[in-house]
Simulated scan of single mutants.
Amino acid sequence: MGLKGKLIGSIEVKCGGSPIHDILHTNTHFLPNITPRVLNHFEIHEGETIKIGSVVSWKFHQDGKEIFLKEMIESVDLEKKSITWKVIGGNMLESYNSFTIITSSEYQWTTVTLMYEKKTEDTPEPLTLLNIFLTGLKDIESHLLK
């Protein structure tokens, strides 16, 4: 038991959630330049920018190790400013059977939700990964406030 988990982190953003969602939705390819201390690489493999069915990949460092995530966009809700990214390949699937990342923005808040199923009870909760996402969101906010 205890193999499935959900972590949620929200940060207040002075620029508002809509501009952050816009970068995540339409200008994702700029993220390595906006968040260089977090994200090393972003690539679209199939589809367009961030559309349902698009396949994208990210590279970043976590605890001194390069992490590669390959994700498929499961849903985009423009009204709720939400994107659901299902991990379909990469390092994360070495420790987790499934991993889904949901980003959402509203008013002055941006939220990251990690839903996952660990392969073993000993697999740690992805707290470091949640922190990486929140740090990236703070970098996006700083970029937008310039």
Rank of each mutant, 00 (worst) to 15 (best):
His29Phe: 12
Lys65Arg: 13
Asn33Asp: 15
Ser57Tyr: 07
Gln62Pro: 00
Ile44Glu: 03
Lys70Phe: 12
Glu48Gln: 08
Pro32Ala: 06
Thr26Asp: 11
Trp58Val: 09
Ile67Cys: 09
Ser57Glu: 09
Gln62Phe: 10
Thr26His: 11
Lys51Ala: 07
Glu46Asn: 04
Pro32Leu: 06
Trp58Arg: 03
Trp58Phe: 15
Asp63Val: 05
Ile44His: 01
Leu69Phe: 15
Ile50Asn: 03
Leu31His: 02
Ile44Met: 03
Glu43Leu: 10
Thr35Ser: 15
Lys59Asp: 12
Ile44Thr: 04
Leu69Trp: 15
Gln62Asn: 13
Thr28Glu: 09
Phe42Arg: 02
Thr28Met: 15
Arg37Ala: 12
Phe60Trp: 13
Phe68Asn: 10
Leu39Gly: 00
Pro36Lys: 05
Leu39Ala: 00
Ile52Asp: 00
Glu43Thr: 06
Thr28Val: 15
Thr49Tyr: 09
Ile34Pro: 12
Gln62Ile: 14
His61Asn: 14
His61Thr: 14
Asn33Ala: 12
Gln62Tyr: 13
Phe60Leu: 14
Val56Lys: 08
Phe30Gln: 15
Leu69Arg: 02
Asn27Ser: 11
Ile50Thr: 05
Thr26Leu: 11
Val56Glu: 04
Ser57Leu: 09
Pro32His: 08
His41Gly: 00
Val38Asn: 09
His45Ser: 03
Glu48Ser: 04
Phe60Thr: 03
Val38Phe: 08
Ile44Val: 13
Lys70His: 10
Thr26Ala: 06
Glu66Pro: 04
Asn33Met: 13
Pro36Val: 02
Val38Ala: 10
His41Pro: 01
Thr28Lys: 10
Glu46Ser: 02
Ser57Gln: 07
His41Thr: 06
His61Trp: 10
Gly53Asn: 01
Glu48Trp: 02
Thr35Tyr: 07
Ile52Asn: 02
Asn40Trp: 10
Gly64Trp: 09
His29Thr: 10
Phe42Ile: 11
Gly47Ala: 01
Asn40Met: 14
Phe30Arg: 15
Lys59Met: 11
Val38Asp: 09
Glu43Ala: 07
Thr26Lys: 11
Gly64Leu: 08
Val56Cys: 12
Lys51Trp: 02
Lys65Pro: 05
Glu48Asp: 06
Val55Asn: 00
Ser54His: 00
His29Lys: 14
His41Phe: 15
Lys59Ala: 05
Leu69Ala: 11
Ile44Pro: 02
Leu31Arg: 06
Ile34Asp: 04
Glu46Asp: 04
Lys51Ser: 07
His61Cys: 06
Gly64Glu: 07
Ile67Asp: 00
Thr49His: 08
Asn33Val: 04
Ile52Thr: 04
Gly53Lys: 02
Ile34Met: 07
Asn27Pro: 01
Arg37Gln: 14
Asn40Phe: 13
Lys51Met: 07
